[in-house]
C-alpha cells in the first residue's frame, strides 16, 4: 500500500499516542482516542488512514473499519472543510430545525448528505446534540452554534466562507 506508506504521525502526535497507551491496561482501548489523533493529523479517516492506525496499533484493519463506521462522529473521507451538522431530534425539530436545514440547502445548493462543489461545506442531519435548551443547533466541525435564527444561519455561512478565503481553519 503505497498510500499508507506515505502516511505517518508527526512526532507530537506519536507522543500523544504513547501517552494514550499509558492510560489504558490494553492497547486496543486506545483505539477511539487514537482515531481522533489520526483525524486531526490526516484531516479525515478514509481507508488508508484507517489502515495506518491498524498497522500502528497492531489491530486488524477490519476491526478499525468496524469501529469507525459504527460511530457517526468521526470525520470520514470526502467531507467538506466545514461539516454542518444540523441537530434534527425532537427538541430542535419543535423549534425549527427543519427550516434551518432548508435554509442551508437553499444557500449552498446542496441536499442533506451532500458536499458543495467548492468542497467547503457538507450538510448532515444528526441526532440529539445535547443542547436542546438552545435549539436549533448546528455543530460545525468541533463548534456548537446555538439558538440559531435563519439570519444567524446566513451569517454563519458567510463567516465560514470568509474564514476559508483567508486560509484560516
Amino acid at each position: 500500500m503505497t498510500v499508507t506508506e506515505t502516511l505517518a504521525f508527526s512526532d507530537e502526535a506519536m507522543k500523544k499516542y504513547e501517552w494514550l497507551l499509558s492510560r489504558y491496561p490494553t492497547r486496543k482501548a486506545a483505539l477511539l482516542p487514537t482515531l481522533r489523533i489520526a483525524e486531526s493529523e490526516f484531516g479525515e479517516l478514509g481507508v488508508p488512514q484507517m489502515k495506518y492506525v491498524a498497522d500502528l496499533m497492531e489491530i486488524p484493519p477490519a476491526t478499525v473499519f468496524g469501529v469507525v463506521t459504527f460511530y457517526t462522529h468521526y470525520r470520514r473521507a470526502g467531507v467538506g472543510k466545514y461539516h454542518l451538522q444540523v441537530c434534527s431530534t425532537l427538541s430542535c425539530a419543535l423549534r425549527g430545525s427543519g427550516d434551518v436545514v432548508s435554509r442551508v440547502t437553499e444557500r449552498l445548493g446542496i441536499g442533506v448528505g451532500e458536499t458543495s462543489d467548492c468542497g467547503l461545506f457538507t450538510l448532515s442531519k444528526v441526532e440529539c446534540l445535547g443542547s436542546c435548551d438552545t435549539a436549533p443547533v448546528i455543530q460545525c466541525n468541533d463548534d456548537y452554534h446555538e439558538g440559531l435564527s435563519l439570519e444567524d444561519v446566513d451569517a454563519l455561512i458567510e463567516q465560514l466562507r470568509q474564514e476559508a478565503g483567508k486560509g484560516g481553519a
Partner: peptide, 12 residues
Amino acid sequence: LDVTVHRGAGAY
C-alpha cells in the same frame, strides 16, 4: 488516583 477523559464518537 488517575482520571482519564475518554471521548465517545457519536452513538446513543
